[in-house]
Computed example of a mutant assay.
Amino acid sequence: MQDETFIHPLAIVEPGAGIGAGVQIGPFCHVGPDVTIGDGTRLISHVVVAGATTIGRNCTIHPQAVLGGPPQSTGHKGGRTTLTIGDNCIIREFVSMNTGTDFGRGATTVGDNGHFLAYVHIAHDCAIGNNVTMTNGVTLAGHIEVGDFVGIGGLSAIHQFVRIGHNAFIAGGSMILGDVIPYAMVGGNRATLRGMNVVGMKRSGVPKAEILKLRRAYRILFDRTRPLAENIERVREEFADSVYSMKVVDFMLARGKRQFTLPPLKGAADDDADGQD
């Protein structure tokens, strides 16, 4: 990374844009007047940054990415809304991220250390956590919440207003219509739960004892012999000493009227998780 700011002669940076120290803006980029770019960020070439967009420090943005375009919503009346991207993000070719809507959150937010591969789309009013990876062709509709350390496989699509909990893993080609609990694996066209994301939990430093508790809690939560509300209360009582299990319970209790939690495959309430303990 160069220490001095460099703007290629073939780039357009409009008056009013805020450009940090050491920023590199390559040829044929277009940076709008309401844009702020943090120190050390690099726009390789052919990047469009529009709208009221703030990009953090030390990001790398690849050709044909379009950041801060207006929301793709007929309800938006043109009010000033924003896109904020955190530090140390890698944004690959043809990624698009839109600003929020004036009837929604008014903001789209992306956390630190994100890795967004080619053709990812993040729609209006989404809130993306830290250390999130979205592989090629992932498509998010509006008003989606994604927790920290989430991995989403290629060509997956997520319905509006869905919540994805921390440390969840979504298999490639999944169609997500409901909320994904923290630490879960999901997959399929009209996706279902496939157990707990044991590998992801280990990588994140979750203790083995807590992983075992989570897997037991999972089996109780999705035991179809009892109502879900009863299962949640049972887990709440039996696993009150487990911070991670309580995060799952709190996530499920925070559902809105329009939301439902993805269930396991019909007749499969067990946590397979590739047989890992």
Rank of each mutant, 00 (worst) to 15 (best):
Q2L: 12
L10S: 15
G16R: 06
A17I: 02
I19W: 05
G20L: 09
H30C: 05
D34M: 05
G40C: 10
T41P: 10
L43Q: 06
S45K: 08
V48F: 12
V49T: 08
A50E: 13
A52F: 11
T53C: 07
I55S: 02
R57Y: 03
T60Q: 09
Q64V: 04
A65T: 00
A65S: 10
L67C: 07
G68N: 01
G75E: 14
K77I: 02
G79K: 04
R80T: 11
T84R: 14
I85C: 07
I85E: 06
D87H: 11
N88Y: 14
I90M: 11
E93N: 08
F94Y: 13
F94K: 03
V95Y: 02
M97S: 02
M97Y: 01
G100T: 11
T101A: 06
F103S: 11
G104Y: 06
G106N: 06
T109N: 05
V110S: 12
D112M: 07
G114P: 12
G114E: 06
L117M: 15
I122N: 10
A123Y: 07
C126Y: 05
G129S: 05
T133A: 11
N136S: 09
V138H: 04
G142W: 10
I144G: 14
I152K: 07
G153A: 04
L155V: 09
F161H: 13
V162D: 10
H166N: 14
I170H: 02
A171L: 12
G172A: 14
M175K: 10
L177N: 09
L177E: 08
L177I: 05
I181N: 03
I181E: 07
G187N: 04
N189T: 08
N189S: 14
R190H: 14
T192L: 04
L193G: 14
R203L: 03
S204W: 01
P207Q: 06
I211C: 07
L212H: 05
R215H: 00
R216M: 08
D223L: 04
R224L: 01
T225A: 15
L228N: 00
N231K: 15
E237P: 00
E237L: 05
A240Y: 00
D241G: 07
V249G: 09
D250P: 00
F251K: 11
F251I: 14
L253W: 00
A254N: 15
R258K: 15
L262P: 01
P263G: 07
L265Y: 12
K266E: 15
K266D: 13
A269F: 14
D274A: 08
D277F: 10
